[in-house]
């Protein structure tokens, strides 16, 4: 049971997505990094513009969702719109055939060196 709160916004979620409930691509998950390929242009909705601003640096889907205050599922739809339009690109974590994240020993070593240097 939730009560209408002072931070509510009048726009309903379906108006953000034009009624769509699933993203056009299935490969987005919570930690997919999104990078903006262009700045916000005129005519974009404020949410898309905000995503593009956030993603000036690679930002994960879940972070975007938290910043926008929108459910992850809706955020995925918005992000996939941007990806489809070529305004942003996704950087997926690489997985091995066994489904575990692929770990590059060289990278890990660099991380270790970096940590020690702290």
């Amino acid at each position: 049971m939730s009560r209408p709160g002072p931070d509510d916004r009048p726009d309903r979620l379906y108006t953000l997505t034009s009624g769509r409930s699933r993203p056009s691509r299935e490969d987005l998950d919570l930690v997919t990094l999104i990078v903006a390929e262009s700045g916000p242009a005129a005519g974009l909705s404020s949410e898309l513009a905000t995503i593009l601003r956030l993603c000036a640096h690679p930002t994960s889907v879940v972070e975007i969702s938290a910043e926008l205050g929108l459910p992850v599922s809706i955020t995925k739809i918005l992000v996939s719109d941007l990806l489809d339009a070529g305004r942003a690109t996704a950087r997926h974590p690489r997985y091995t055939a066994s489904g575990r994240p692929e770990l590059d020993p060289a990278t890990l070593e660099k991380v270790l060196v970096g940590l020690r240097a702290l």
Partner: peptide, 17 residues
Amino acid sequence: ATAPAASATAATPAAPA
């Protein structure tokens, strides 16, 4: 108020055509 301060920049130029 609507966007993070650090990135409040582009919205102004992004004002609608």
